[in-house]
Design a protein around this nucleic acid. Sequence first.
DNA 1: CTTTAATACATAGGAAAACTATGTATATTT
DNA 2: AAATATACATAGTTTTCCTATGTATTAAAG
Lengths: 110, 110
Amino acid sequence: MHSPELLKGTLQTIILKLLEDHGKMYGYEITQKVKELSSSKILLTEGSLYPMLHKMVAEGLLQTEDFHIGKRVRKYYKLTADGSEAVSVRIAEFTDFIKTMSVVLKLHKT
Amino acid sequence: MHSPELLKGTLQTIILKLLEDHGKMYGYEITQKVKELSSSKILLTEGSLYPMLHKMVAEGLLQTEDFHIGKRVRKYYKLTADGSEAVSVRIAEFTDFIKTMSVVLKLHKT
DNA sequence: CTTTAATACATAGGAAAACTATGTATATTT
DNA sequence: AAATATACATAGTTTTCCTATGTATTAAAG
């Protein structure tokens, strides 16, 4: 990962967006999808992801469903109604933040 | 401020860029400039800014110069050679991060 | 003229987010 | 059979930024 500090505050947004696009996903699947989409620039560690998923369940943004695959339990996460609402809000916040930073840092449009 | 978490990891970049553009600035001036440039969306508190400035001095990115304005000491900050080099690196990191996030969040270009 | 607001620096203490390290266990590939 | 990939989880730490507080000067408002 380039600079991990920048990821702060965006992990929830990433998770919400992925679940909106894919319906339901399990933890390991999320780490792989993020790695794939980011060309290995964002490498979510399990130590970051699982605590965040648990937190988002506690906050009512996500709900879980357990599937038994052979002897292993796979825990799928999907958006709640609150989670669905949160997606667009978080993305709007992020794009707004980028706009503000572009002005402050005087970035020319790519 | 919209969502303070997003600011994490960008404060150093903001400070470096402002000092590159303005030569030298003092703490209070930085808070006001950031407020102005961001249309009051980024409100740096002194509790965030001063510890970060001190840290950046300790890291060798900034150096200080004291000016006596009446009875008050005003502490100006400016870039060191290392600080000057860091500016473009940090900005490149940030734009790269935006690109990555745009793919992950499937943002269309504004 | 005096009180309030703005200017200006600083630190202590705490919360949040993400990391490293570790642990457990199953499934697949070599 | 061993090594790697899959899959979940938590404890402890670091970093970053915040709130709250403190001190003090200068300018504006009443």
